[in-house]
C-alpha cells in the first residue's frame, strides 16, 4: 500500500516516487496546494476504492497521516 500511495502522490504532484518519504508533507512539495489536494483525494478514492469525509480530507496533510487514514479505511 505504501508503494502504491507513493506512486499516486508522485503522479499527482509531478515528482518521482523516490522523492516521497514518510517525512513528506504539503510544505515539501511545490505542487501540493489546495487544488492538487483535491486531485490527490480523487486519485486515492479511485485507486483504493474508499471515500473520505470532509474532516479526513482536511487532516491528510502529510504522508504519515494519509497512510494512517487509508489504513483505517481499508482495515
Amino acid at each position: 500500500m505504501e508503494e502504491k500511495l507513493k506512486e499516486v502522490m508522485a503522479s499527482v504532484f509531478e515528482v518521482s516516487p523516490e522523492e516521497i518519504s514518510h517525512q513528506t508533507s504539503s510544505d515539501d512539495l511545490e505542487k501540493w496546494d489546495s487544488l492538487h489536494h483535491m486531485n490527490l483525494i480523487a486519485a486515492l478514492e479511485e485507486e483504493f476504492e474508499v471515500e473520505f469525509d470532509e474532516d479526513e480530507i482536511l487532516d491528510m496533510i502529510n504522508f504519515k497521516l494519509i497512510l494512517l487514514t487509508l489504513s483505517e479505511k481499508l482495515n
Binding site: E7, V8, S11, V12, N39, A42, A43, E46, E47
Partner: peptide, 8 residues
Amino acid sequence: LKYIQILK
C-alpha cells in the same frame, strides 16, 4: 481509465 492513469 482511472484519473491517475490519465495523468501518467
